[in-house]
């Protein structure tokens, strides 16, 4: 594992068994994440995009050891501490939780209505035993609250008094108070209005640079990802289909799915109507996956090879990887 990589996933799979199936037949499983190889560099703002049902949340959870890892390995190495996530238990798992945190999507559901903002932010410190006195806890809470642009007098209030944007800043403060190295932000701006969303995005970016954090930013919104992330991975039905530095991905997408996703974003130009390349159909069910390339049922460039053989993620240019049999011919 190279020095500048914080998280290294190899052949990572997460399967959930389903009830039912024949007495002697195989149990049906949901293959939420399948054979993912992924490196997240230290200090990266790493974006993970895909439609709902593509497995992006499950992948994020697996990297936090919050989803069961069925197969493969995940290594974490921040220089001070190393963990192999597959076998992490007991004290080591608790230690890992201090270094890896999650920011949730819905700031209305994520904060307890019966706790003051101070208690909400202080709870991780108390649970993890990171501070030795109440004074020290308060000091840490005030410090992170200031960083997240929360007013100190807000700390005594309850979450219901706050707007969506302020609540999301409280969630961010809570996630960052234990000084983690790795933060998974799962659709953290999806529930916010655009005018507020920009503010939270700018805050995440500032904090990331100031604290030297590594972010995994999960989103279905490609324009948000384009603005905030330096590296992007695109998921489809549990697989990574393309990964590249942000600008490279958005200027020269190689996978037909990435191209279709980009072209489906409604343009702000009213004269640009109907130019989008439309994707037919919907994402297949993860219990009943198509053969070969998982995207072949919706791909306009499908061939017999695509139906039979699943393409693997291969190097295409500097830092750019794509899983498609035909990406080279489709470039011209």
């Amino acid at each position: 594992m190279s020095d500048d990589v914080l998280i290294e996933a190899r052949d990572l799979s997460v399967h959930y068994p389903l009830r039912g199936g024949g007495l002697f037949g195989p149990k049906p499983v949901v293959r939420a994440v399948e054979s993912v190889n992924l490196d997240i560099g230290k200090g990266n703002f790493f974006g993970l995009v895909g439609e709902s049902g593509s497995g992006k949340t499950t992948l994020g959870k697996a990297l936090l050891r919050a989803a069961p890892i069925t197969r493969g390995s995940v290594q974490y190495d921040d220089g001070d501490a190393q963990y192999a996530l597959t076998n992490l238990m007991g004290k080591d798992l608790k230690d890992y939780r201090k270094r890896a945190q999650l920011i949730f999507q819905d700031p209305y559901a994520a904060l307890s209505p019966r706790m003051t903002v101070r208690d909400i932010i202080a709870e991780p410190l108390e649970v993890m035993g990171l501070t030795s006195s109440r004074e020290e806890t308060d000091e840490r809470v005030r410090e992170i609250a200031a960083k997240c642009r929360l007013n100190l007098e807000h700390l005594r209030r309850f979450p219901h008094a706050f707007s969506g944007g302020q609540r999301q800043r409280i969630s961010i403060a809570r996630a960052l108070v234990s000084k983690p190295q790795f933060v998974v932000a799962d659709e953290s701006v999806a529930a916010l209005d655009v005018s507020i969303q920009a503010d939270v995005l700018n805050l995440l970016q500032e904090i990331q640079q100031e604290m030297g954090l590594t972010f995994l930013f999960i989103s279905h919104d490609l324009s948000v990802v384009a603005h905030i992330c330096d590296h992007v991975a695109v998921m489809y039905l549990g697989r990574l289909v393309e990964t590249a530095p942000t600008r490279e991905l958005f200027s020269a997408p190689k996978h037909p799915y990435t191209k279709a996703l980009l072209s489906a974003i409604p343009s702000l130009d009213p004269d640009d109507r109907g130019k989008a390349q439309k994707l037919e159909g919907e994402i297949p069910s993860p219990t009943n996956q198509p053969s070969g390339c998982k995207f072949h049922t919706r791909c306009p460039y499908v061939t017999d090879l695509c139906r039979k053989e699943e393409p693997i993620l291969q190097h295409s240019s500097d830092g750019h990887e794509v899983a498609c049999h035909r990406w080279e011919e489709l470039m011209d």
Binding site: Q197, A198, L201, N202, I265
Partner: peptide, 21 residues
Amino acid sequence: LIAALPQLDDLDTPLTPIPGD
């Protein structure tokens, strides 16, 4: 509202939030 909207054809201009709630 338009300035706060992340746009794909312009990744260099920082997003400008509308201040306050």
